[in-house]
Design a protein around this nucleic acid. Structure first.
Length: 736
RNA sequence: GGUGAUGUAGCUCAGACGGUUAGAGCGGCGGAUUCAUAACCCGCAGGUCGGCAGUUCGAUUCUGCCCAUCACCA
């Protein structure tokens, strides 16, 4: 019976680019989802951009655009990157949507009615200039323990001390620089410490809902005592206002996981699916969240407790993975190993990375390392040297000698044992037993329930042997032990290559009377190649499509290995399926990332904690960056230059250099103070077109807020010469 | 600081519920081959399984301590 599965990956924050660290999770989830679909199950993969919170609000303000415009732009960037890596979401949505608001309100209201929401006064730092409460990460000051300067409000990066923002010495706002004042305000708390929550979680945080190693960690937190969770933030805040609490907004971390519901609901509405069938408490559907170990707390404590007490089912499983290191160290901008998805795609094939990550992922919470040398060696050897090579070395005979048709005879049974290297079948068996003993997730439970049918295969036949391995490979995929799956698959590729070497088809080709033998060998080898393609398809979907076209077969599913290619089946001309990685391309990519460092003249306030998901970059990196004569195109495109029409220009009372300009950008108008009074008469400027920096952070000047800057050349005396676009340009046009 | 995880050949990783000569792939070296975008096949070398101590007839596998790396501390 097909399973009904819903999977999610953590929501990337709409405040930064997707990089190779993020991709571990999306690739892992995508492989698992594709595997399930190939098995004939329904597996819906939903995700969304996480769009709320102070960092988004401030960044939009800094860029001079609305938060809505910012998250819209970032959504497209994220989607483009995911598409580039063949992440096959069924829905990629946003948390800033009516669906997410609906479920946030539903969950909040039900928790409130259950008596699990409590209002408490909280004293917090308040920025008197910006008129806003400051998140911990937006307060800086001197560490109370080691007295390091400019440390964040929650912990010291020098000595590692954790403290409250109010403990900082000489605190200042990272937003305005002003000294913050203490101010009290009502906050809404989810009462996680309520016995109902604690009792529920005690029974919930055990395998198979979470991995055994995660259960240890969670228990540690649980036994340490759970604190209530502050789920509200005061205006100004970009998010959803709490229905019965004007001026209070849901904390971004409340609506982030709810975004899973929102995205899925949106998918259901568009495809006529029944949302409740998946999310009602007694649902028979399976729900899995793939997450990084940094957000385990949210997904395995807050989230199930919220769901359970608001009338929803809880996840079938939370699958936690580790972080990515590159060449054994944290990703680093100065080493060029902070590699964005977009930059990777400019240089390298996404399936190479999918394969390498898969070869490292084993379903545990351990970190995985992207060793760039090993990456090239592994991909070149496994995929090009072993796997693709099988097709490459047989296809020529089939097309030249047999008119592109495989053998018309039924394939004979062939003893595989001569080709199974030293590794005896018993040893293989032992490995399988060991794999079975590893702490298995829900997939294993599903397996025990009989979802996975295990047909018996004839292992004394080489094709049957490849089918039999498919059972073990499927189990490995199910358990998210992709590393084991790929080891088994490559073992099979080795056997196919040894088989060809042993039978020596090239010798047969020289002898007149051995045509049928030659035909048989190539047909067997191509059948094995077809099976390998089935097994690799979750990891290499695009390559598999090329193979389907080469072999002239319908899209491959897992069940296809059960039947050989039909006798006499016609295949197409072989075209090389994958090229080797040229290490110079990797070097070029790293070099580009090294050079494209943002100069970061003004240190930006660090994003709030949740926004750091997967952004584990070596600290103190930027400071060491050598100045470069060149900037990358990325640096340039960060500057949003626009054509602007000077709608009005006037003198400023009391200013001896400034003119106050009103600039028309087509969709909006801006006020800009420009130091051009010495050269221009206001009246002569009105109606002119010029060029402005549209995303310059607004700056408070003596005479008012300046929301951008216009461009001008200047001579030795500082006399300005305003730039103007060619005739025909219209206000708002982007300059690049 | 507390807690947890990890530490196995040059590299990336398996594995051992304690027990004969500790494994693979890659890399290196030698050979064979030429069907294959030099891939593939055969063979060789390479590790006192992080360190110290304990339990045991016996530990790399269990226990304790130490060192290193990583993470978490709401």
């Amino acid at each position: 019976m097909p399973r009904q599965i819903l999977v999610t990956s953590a929501l990337p924050y709409a405040n930064g680019s997707i990089h190779l660290g993020h991709l571990v999770e999306y690739i892992q989830t995508d492989i698992w989802a594709r595997f399930q679909r190939m098995r004939g199950h329904s597996c819906i993969y939903c995700c969304a951009d996480d769009t709320h919170g102070t960092p988004i609000m401030l960044r939009a303000e800094k860029e001079g655009i609305t938060p809505e415009a910012l998250i819209e732009r970032v959504w497209h960037e994220h989607k483009r990157d995911f598409d580039g890596f063949h992440i096959a979401f069924d829905n990629y949505h946003s948390t800033h949507t009516p669906e997410t608001r609906h479920y946030a309100d539903t969950i909040y209201t039900r928790l409130r009615d259950a008596g699990l929401i409590e209002v408490r006064a909280v004293e917090q730092f308040f920025d008197p200039v910006k008129q806003m409460f400051l998140p911990d990460r937006f307060v800086k000051g001197e560490c109370p323990r080691c007295h390091a300067r400019d440390q964040y409000g929650d912990s010291c990066e020098v000595c590692g001390a954790a403290y409250l923002p109010t403990e900082l010495i000489d605190p200042y706002s990272a937003v305005s620089g002003a000294a913050p004042v203490r101010k009290e305000s009502d906050h809404y708390f989810f009462r996680l410490s309520d016995p109902r929550c604690v009792e529920f979680l005690r029974t919930w945080i055990v395998p198979p809902q979470v991995q055994a190693e995660a259960a240890n960690k969670l228990n540690e937190w649980l036994e340490g005592g759970l604190a209530d969770w502050d789920i509200s933030r005061d205006a100004p805040y970009f998010g959803f206002e709490i229905p019965d609490a004007p001026g209070k907004y849901y904390y971004v971390w409340l609506d982030a996981p709810i975004g899973y519901l929102g995205s899925f609901r949106n998918h259901c509405d568009r495809h006529g699916l029944d949302f409740d069938a998946y999310w009602k408490p007694d649902s028979g559907a399976e729900v899995y969240h793939f997450i990084g170990k940094d957000i385990l707390y949210f997904h395995a404590l807050f989230w199930p407790a919220e769901l359970h007490h608001s009338g929803f089912r809880t996840p079938t499983g939370v699958f936690c993975h580790g972080f990515l290191t590159v060449n054994g160290a944290k990703m680093s901008k100065s080493r060029g190993t902070f590699i964005t998805a977009e930059s990777y795609l400019r240089h390298l094939n996404p399936e190479w990375l999918r394969y390498y990550y898969a070869a490292k992922l084993n379903g545990s919470m351990e970190d995985i390392d992207l060793n760039l040398e090993d990456f090239a060696a592994r991909v070149n050897s496994d995929l090009v040297g072993k796997y693709v090579n099988i097709a490459s070395r047989c296809a020529g005979f089939i097309s030249k000698r047999f008119n592109g048709r495989i053998s018309g005879e039924e394939l004979p049974k062939l003893d595989p044992s001569p080709y199974i290297a030293q590794q005896s079948q018993e040893e293989m068996q032992r490995k399988m037993e060991a794999a079975r003993k590893t702490p298995s997730g829900p997939g294993f439970i599903a397996h025990a329930k009989g979802y996975i049918v295990q047909p018996q295969f004839d292992e004394t036949d080489i094709v049957g042997w490849s089918q039999a391995r498919g059972v073990e490979i499927a189990q490995a995929y199910e358990d998210r032990n992709f590393a084991l799956a790929l080891r088994l698959i490559m073992e099979l590729a080795d056997i196919a290559n040894r088989y060809i070497a042993e039978r020596k088809p090239w010798e047969m080709a020289r002898q007149e009377d051995r045509d049928s033998e030659l035909h048989e060998v190539c047909s067997v080898a191509l059948t094995l190649f077809r099976n390998l393609t089935v097994y690799l398809k979750p990891v290499l979907p695009v390559l598999a499509e090329q193979v389907e076209s080469f072999l002239n077969v319908a899209p491959l599913t897992w069940a296809d290995v059960l039947s050989p290619l039909p006798p006499g089946h016609a295949i197409n001309e072989y075209q090389h399926l994958m090229t080797r990685i040229d290490p110079r391309k990797i070097e070029a990519m790293v070099e580009e990332n090294r050079r494209n460092l943002a100069p970061a003249p003004t240190p930006e306030p660090a994003p709030a904690r949740h926004a750091e998901h997967q952004q584990h970059v070596a600290q103190t990196d930027e400071a060491k960056v050598p100045e470069s004569r060149h900037i990358g195109i990325d640096d340039f495109t960060r500057v949003d230059l626009r054509v602007a029409r000077i709608a009005n220009a006037e003198h400023v009372e009391g200013a001896d250099k400034l003119l106050k300009l009103t600039l028309d950008l087509g969709t909006e108008t801006r006020t800009v103070f420009a130091g051009i009074k010495v050269a221009y008469d206001p009246a002569s400027l009105v109606g002119r077109l010029t060029v402005m920096v549209a995303n310059l952070a607004p700056r408070k000047m003596k005479f008012g807020m300046s929301e951008g800057m216009i461009l001008a050349a200047s001579d030795d005396q500082g006399r300005p010469f305003l730039l103007a676009p060619d005739s025909g340009a219209r206000p708002g046009m982007r300059i690049r």
